[in-house]
Simulated assay, not measured.
Amino acid sequence: MTKAIEALRKRMQAAVDTLDFEEARRCRDQINLLRGGAAPEEAEQADLSGIERQQPGAMGLGTSQQRMTPPPGWKPPPKPNPMTKGRSSRGGGERGR
């Protein structure tokens, strides 16, 4: 099994060096099949044209949540001024007199 994977790795690197990325993709997919438990003969004869890599976020936690969109005309509230944080607008001078 490891000899078949090593041969496919060499074939994949040769394909990358000649910029034949389709052949490199086929080799990569065959390596993944071998690592998944397929026999070398099965991996060689497998039709890999329909196999696509899973996109991030396609499955898993949080994918069924809808995106929140604000209602039309909504504006976010103004951000507080950090220079006035904690100060009273009533006057009164210092605290604790």
Rank of each mutant, 00 (worst) to 15 (best):
P70Y: 15
A4Q: 03
T69W: 14
A15D: 00
D29N: 06
R87T: 12
G60M: 06
T63E: 06
A39L: 13
R9V: 11
N81E: 15
R67P: 07
T18M: 02
E94T: 05
R11G: 01
L33Y: 04
A24Q: 08
G92F: 01
P70R: 10
P56C: 03
G37S: 10
E42T: 13
P40E: 00
G37T: 13
S64E: 13
N81F: 14
E52T: 05
K79G: 11
Q54A: 15
M1Q: 03
D29R: 03
A7N: 06
T84I: 09
T18A: 11
T84F: 10
M12V: 03
I5G: 00
P71M: 09
S49Y: 02
E52F: 00
R28H: 02
R26S: 01
D29S: 07
T69D: 15
E23D: 05
G92Y: 04
D47C: 00
P77F: 08
R28W: 00
E6D: 15
G93V: 03
K79M: 15
I51L: 04
I31H: 05
E44S: 09
Q54S: 15
P70T: 14
A4D: 05
R25T: 12
Q55E: 12
Q65T: 04
K75P: 00
R95T: 07
L33R: 14
A24C: 12
K10L: 05
A4E: 05
P70V: 13
Q30Y: 05
A14G: 09
E23L: 04
D17L: 10
K3Y: 04
R35M: 07
G91I: 10
L33C: 13
G91L: 03
P56H: 04
M12C: 13
A39S: 15
W74A: 15
M83S: 07
F21W: 05
G86R: 11
M59N: 12
M83A: 10
Q55V: 14
A46K: 02
E41R: 12
Q65K: 08
S49C: 07
R25S: 02
S88Y: 09
A7E: 07
F21Y: 09
R67S: 06
P82Y: 12
N81K: 15
I5H: 02
R90K: 08
E22A: 05
M83I: 07
T2W: 01
G57I: 05
R90Y: 08
P71C: 01
S89R: 11
F21N: 02
A58Q: 12
R9K: 09
A39P: 11
